[in-house]
Amino acid sequence: MTSSSERPYPPLRKRLFSVWYRHVRVYTKNGFSNALPPFLEPLLFLAGVGLGLGRYITESMEGLAYLEFLGTGLLVTTSMFTAAFECTFGTFIRLEFEKVYDGMLAAPITVNNLIVGEIIWAGSKGLFFSFAVLCILSVFGVISFADGLMAPLVGFLTGLMFGALSLLVTSFVKTINHFNFYFTGFISPMFFFSGVVFPVSNLPKFVRPFAEIVPLTHSVRLARSMCTGRYQISLLLDLLYVAFFILVVGLLAIRRLRRRLVS
């Protein structure tokens, strides 16, 4: 119980925790089928693209062997995908089909608590997925486990960014099929043009500014330097971008989604 007699309800951190806990319990309920894909996917990717295609790529990219270059990018793309799916399809189903939020909002949490909890959950999934990629990369000796240990933190931040962004997108969506535009038009292009599969510097000059505007580019840069230990002062700008993005997009998402949750 809180010390203040004015507040006979749980404090903020417990309220956020309860939202997060709900998602963890539902997610871990199907532990095996939910925990396996994050490990399998990078495995397939490394095998197919890295070993298959990578054999033809002898040139180093930003001073890294191709597998290392690609692998360090996958550490955060996986966070992007999981957070984007969670906060589009997942959120929409909870909102419109299962009406889960209607029940939760009858408990002592506010709409803001609910949405922030949702974003933190997306971050946690980003962390876990990023960690799974790290495990696979270190098992195959692409990077050492110790070197990459900071990367899941970037995965967490990436999850927060794409969680917030996807919630903002969800706030506009009326039917679940509309998410296809978001994935085909935004998420997939980002995978290819944010310095994951090839360096941003190889993009045509007029496209490069776009790569700097989208969030994934900054995540990739952060993750890659964490794994390789090559830190530059410009990374602070990337970090600043990430923090700013989470804050601004998060606030917008709260403002917009609020209208769908409270009438």
């Binding site: 507040r7 006979p8 309800y9 749980p10 709900r22 319990r25 539902v26 309920k29 199907n30 299962e98 009406k99 889960v100 209607d102 029940g103 009858a106 408990a107 002592p108 949490i109 506010t110």
Partner: peptide, 20 residues
């Protein structure tokens, strides 16, 4: 929050977590 803490709500639709 104070109101919700002191109240229990049974909404029109059952919204239970089907997975659990």
């Amino acid at each position: 929050l104070a109101i919700k803490y002191l109240s229990g709500v049974v909404p029109q639709e059952n919204n239970l977590d089907e997975e659990l």
